[in-house]
Every structure is written in C-alpha cells, then in structure tokens.
C-alpha cells in the first residue's frame, strides 16, 4: 500500500475528527464540547483542501473558496454556540452539560 500525500492528509484529518468526536462526547464542560465540534469541522475543512489540491483540477480556486465559506459559517455558529453557553449559564449558574436537562421530552 503506497502512502500518497492525499492519503496522509486524509489520515491526519481522520485523526483530527476522532479527537474532536471524543472530546465532544466525553467532556462535561459545554465550552469544551464546542471546542470538539470545532475540531471536527476543521477536519472536514482539511478534507476539502486535500481533495482540491490533489484532485483533477487544482488550478480552479473552488476548494479554497468553499473552505472560506465554511470557516465563515463556523464563526457564526461559534458565536451562536457561545451565546447559548452564556444563556445556559445565566439560567442555572453552571455550564455543565449534565445539568442542562430541561429539554427532556
């Protein structure tokens, strides 16, 4: 099995994704869960870049543009997420996710 640069990039992004997933699932602080989510997102961004760079048409700027969009959306999402964290804190004086069980059906 030959490790091409594409394979290396994909392995890196997979590792990043797994770190983010584990972080998001295991931490109890909601800020750290958000951090994990951001890591997974950036793993996806890395995939975009890799497939663009080693894909059939590296001359076109589509991959970079797509990632730029994704980062912009991620920034908005982070803002909303942090605002949610603040709202949760205001409600129950804690940012532990285990305490925020109001959404129980």
């Amino acid at each position: 099995m030959i490790l091409t640069p594409l394979h290396l990039c994909l392995l890196l992004s997979s590792a990043l994704f797994c770190i983010g997933l584990i972080g998001a699932l295991s931490r109890s602080s909601s800020i750290l869960v958000l951090l994990g989510v951001e890591l997974m997102l950036n793993a996806a961004n890395l995939n975009f870049i890799a497939f663009w760079r080693y894909g059939p048409n590296p001359a076109a700027g589509t991959g970079v543009l797509f990632v730029l969009f994704s980062i912009a959306v991620a920034a908005a999402e982070a803002a909303v997420g942090l605002a949610l964290v603040i709202a949760i804190y205001r409600h129950q004086r804690s940012i532990r996710l285990q305490d925020a069980r109001r959404l129980k059906g």
């Binding site: 998001a24 699932l25 109890s28 909601s30 869960v33 996710l97 285990q98 925020a100 069980r101 109001r102 959404l103 129980k104 059906g105």
Partner: peptide, 11 residues
C-alpha cells in the same frame, strides 16, 4: 421517552 434532555446522549 427518547428525549432525555442530555446533550451528551444526543451527541
């Protein structure tokens, strides 16, 4: 019943 309210469960 599936809606436990815990964000970790959903994740």
């Amino acid at each position: 019943a599936a809606q436990t309210g815990g964000a970790h469960g959903y994740l």
